[in-house]
Design a protein around this nucleic acid. Structure first.
Length: 420
DNA sequence: TCTGGGGTCCTAGGACCC
DNA sequence: TCTGGGGTCCTAGGACCC
């Protein structure tokens, strides 16, 4: 049996951990530049605020109902996520963190008749220990566990845990579950299924394998099997990331080359740090910048360069120099760049890096310097020491009017114990 | 005026091989 | 008129997830 633990309204719940006075009030967390709503409390959902809606479109509602808005604070959410995950990890031998607020874990070491009570205790422990409310779904496949978790979240009577164990439970759960809400069924698949007269998960599960495969290919067949209770999507533990991205939309478009280069340098540094954390190196680097796709009054411009590195690397200085050289080849003076980003690709373990016989750089020396810089960062916080290219002007380019204080900076010592 | 960020997997089709 | 067959690898783009 699988369990899926899902944090309720995660980003909002994180903000509430440090602001208990906001319990019972409508609260939302916003995307970058305070653009869109990305997390909503139940009270905000009840007001009809939709996921992903731009803030400016609901401004009057926010003011009228006293909705509390937060800019996103990802270092806070990351820290609280780590605490929730580390507690769950202690209760299982097989564990997969699926996203910042969700994880799958195997519970076969618990007797079947005690699994529900076991998970209920876990829900209470995490609520008490971390302050985050979670819901758990239990079933024989990951897709059914996701279905169960939605029921657990929806009906308070379940006390946070719902299981799909018997055939009756499965049929009942799927018969009133909308097909578009099934894990793996997106917009396109839903449209195809609706056209075929299918609106519930049960109707889909009761069609033939040939039908599922014919309409939705391999991913659709897997979902179909999982809805019938077959376990075909296995838990994948700690996979190494195959690509690492850092990108941002700017509050106002940037035309200045130097300012854009400063942003790209910071994106590179952020990606490279993640690369080193997982002990890997990138063989390719992709840089892009473009105008706002929402502007119909200006000509669209999309700049992009793919660089294949002579030797795979995770060195910040080196990645920045390749990224900026690529950017300079494609930069168009005068263009209104609204968004830019850096992607690292073809990622390999650092032990698999193949040296170049004619390599002019002293990689040993560069690595030693990098380790010292990382060490200073770890001890003294982010941006304690950075490269010149990362701070030419340090002009503000993002908008975060509603950011909560950096609670976890003060909590650094407590949190570091858990992290290492 | 204002519209997020970071991932994975699958498939079709082209290039290339014998 | 008529022009093989089978395989692998790579890439771009689509669909999906949170």
């Amino acid at each position: 049996m699988y369990a899926l633990a899902d944090c309720n309204n995660f980003f909002v719940s994180c903000e509430r951990v440090f602001r208990p006075d906001l319990e019972g009030r409508p609260v939302v967390v916003l995307s970058g530049n305070d653009g869109c709503v990305v997390s909503r409390s139940n009270e905000a959902k009840a007001l009809g605020i939709k996921m992903g809606v731009p803030l400016y479109q609901i401004k009057s509602l926010v003011e009228a109902k006293g909705v509390v808005c937060f800019s996103s604070n990802f270092s806070l959410y990351g820290d609280l996520s780590d605490r929730v995950m580390s507690i769950i990890r202690r209760h299982t031998s097989r564990f997969e963190q699926y996203s910042i607020d969700e994880c799958f874990f195997n519970i076969d070491h618990i007797p079947a008749d005690r699994q529900k009570a076991y998970c209920e205790a876990l829900v209470r422990d995490i609520r008490r220990g971390v302050g985050i409310p979670i819901s758990i779904g239990i079933a024989s496949s990951k897709t059914l566990a996701k279905v169960a978790s939605k029921y657990a979240k929806k009906y308070p009577g379940y006390h946070g845990v719902c299981e799909i164990r018997t055939e009756e439970q499965r049929l009942k759960a799927l018969s009133s579950f909308e097909i578009g809400d099934v894990w793996g069924i997106g917009r396109k698949a839903k449209a195809k299924l609706t056209a075929a007269g299918i609106t519930t998960a049960l109707q889909f599960a009761e069609r033939s394998a040939t039908f599922a495969r014919g309409l939705l290919r391999k991913p659709g067949l897997l979902t179909w099997q999982e809805l019938r209770g077959q376990d075909v999507i296995d838990i994948t533990e700690l996979p190494m990331k195959q690509s690492i991205t850092t990108s941002r939309t700017f509050a106002t478009a940037i035309t200045d080359q130097s300012l854009l280069e400063e942003q790209l340098a910071n994106f590179c540094a952020h990606c490279a740090r993640q690369l080193r954390t997982q002990h890997s190196a990138a063989q390719q680097l992709y840089v892009y910048a473009h105008t706002s796709s929402f502007r119909t009054d200006i000509a669209q411009h999309y700049l992009s360069e793919l660089v294949t590195l002579p030797v795979a690397t995770s060195n910040t200085q080196e990645l920045i120099s390749y990224a900026l050289a690529a950017f300079r080849r494609a930069y168009r003076p005068g263009a209104l760049y609204k968004k830019a980003g850096v992607v690292l690709l073809k990622i390999i373990p650092e032990t698999a890096v193949v040296p170049d016989l004619f390599d002019p750089t002293d990689r040993n020396k560069a690595d030693r310097l990098q380790r010292v810089l990382d060490h200073i960062d770890d001890r003294h916080g982010k941006r304690a020491i950075i490269l010149g290219s990362q701070m030419r002007s340090d002009a503000p380019v993002y908008k975060t009017e509603h950011k909560s204080p950096l609670y976890t900076t003060d909590m650094r010592d407590i949190l570091t114990v858990k992290a290492k």
